[in-house]
Simulated assay, not measured.
Amino acid sequence: MASAKTLSVEPERRGFNFELHARNQQLVKEGVKPPKMMKTGTTTAAVVFKDGVVLGADTRATGGNMVMNKNCAKIHFLARNMYCLGAGTAADTEYVTRLMAGKLEMLSMSTRRVAPVKAAVRMLKQMLFRYQGHIQAALIVGGVDTLGPHIISIAPHGSSDNAPYLAMGSGSIAAMSVLETYFRPDMTRDEAVKLIRDAINAGVTNDLFSGSNIDICVITKDKSEVVRPYEQNQPDILKKENSYVFQRGKTTVLSQTVKKIDYQVVSQETRKITEEPMETS
């Protein structure tokens, strides 16, 4: 009687995969030049006001000296009382925030209450520290819970900082100068929104890697509102002002020459291929 065969199923891989890291390090030791990292740019800022928090970001995504996307969303959803600003690699920030949004939803369902901001910050810190900075995601978490409004910045290595106003990204120096000049405690909603708008606009104006539109997110204990775009600085490139369809005869033909090309018709049956097939692997 033949014995039953057991099928070995490979477990599903979750999260980021860095299996080729050791191979890449060995190639570097052997003299292989690794590809250069591409410069990214962002301006994100957040501030705490009397009734909640205001988050803001630009919408330009860059890869080196090239603008990859003029309308990139940098305000990411975490929970109904929390949003996150992402700076660094756009793919990393998008994946991390989506993964964390699912974990926070499971936490809310298991505890039957709104997830606190500190819980999201703790899980994000542990995840980023586990990968030792290889996930290029610099985050600012903003939200309102039972303890009040909070904004906390998280570096790619897992360290965090808590302050009444924060800025991250390549344009953060210009944005921070505006925040330090005009911030004051117990601001109203409109004052906080204007302050974040001015801070992001300072980064857009003074940083070549930041630009395009300005997005704003306002979070209070009652609701969360994302205004995208809050201010549109990038003109609509899809709208054509003039018609570029010209009728025949509008362009003058200066000269015209007809050349006869000698060719020979070869049927598919008699054709012999002597070249070796190209290696595509």
Score class of each variant (00 low, 15 high):
residue 7 L to F: 08
residue 8 S to F: 10
residue 11 P to V: 15
residue 12 E to A: 07
residue 16 F to Y: 09
residue 16 F to G: 03
residue 17 N to I: 07
residue 18 F to M: 01
residue 21 H to D: 15
residue 25 Q to L: 08
residue 25 Q to E: 15
residue 29 K to S: 13
residue 33 K to M: 14
residue 37 M to Q: 09
residue 39 K to P: 01
residue 39 K to F: 10
residue 43 T to N: 10
residue 44 T to H: 01
residue 45 A to S: 10
residue 52 G to I: 05
residue 53 V to H: 11
residue 54 V to K: 02
residue 61 A to M: 02
residue 63 G to H: 04
residue 71 N to R: 12
residue 73 A to H: 12
residue 91 A to C: 07
residue 93 T to W: 04
residue 93 T to F: 00
residue 98 R to D: 15
residue 100 M to L: 12
residue 103 K to W: 05
residue 104 L to P: 11
residue 107 L to Q: 13
residue 107 L to H: 14
residue 110 S to I: 03
residue 115 A to C: 14
residue 117 V to D: 09
residue 118 K to N: 14
residue 122 R to N: 14
residue 124 L to R: 06
residue 129 F to I: 00
residue 131 Y to M: 02
residue 134 H to I: 01
residue 134 H to F: 01
residue 142 G to K: 03
residue 142 G to P: 11
residue 144 V to H: 01
residue 149 P to A: 03
residue 149 P to C: 04
residue 151 I to M: 04
residue 152 I to H: 03
residue 153 S to C: 04
residue 154 I to L: 07
residue 155 A to E: 14
residue 161 D to K: 11
residue 164 P to I: 01
residue 173 I to V: 13
residue 175 A to V: 00
residue 176 M to F: 03
residue 177 S to D: 13
residue 180 E to S: 06
residue 180 E to R: 05
residue 183 F to W: 15
residue 184 R to L: 15
residue 185 P to E: 15
residue 185 P to S: 06
residue 185 P to R: 05
residue 189 R to V: 04
residue 189 R to W: 07
residue 196 I to S: 06
residue 199 A to F: 05
residue 203 G to I: 01
residue 205 T to D: 12
residue 206 N to M: 00
residue 207 D to L: 02
residue 215 D to N: 08
residue 222 D to R: 09
residue 222 D to T: 12
residue 224 S to P: 08
residue 225 E to Y: 00
residue 227 V to N: 07
residue 230 Y to K: 07
residue 232 Q to F: 04
residue 233 N to P: 00
residue 236 D to E: 13
residue 242 N to K: 08
residue 245 V to A: 11
residue 246 F to A: 10
residue 258 V to H: 11
residue 266 V to A: 09
residue 266 V to F: 13
residue 267 S to V: 00
residue 267 S to W: 04
residue 271 R to I: 00
residue 273 I to Y: 14
residue 276 E to R: 08
residue 278 M to Q: 09
residue 279 E to P: 05
residue 279 E to M: 07
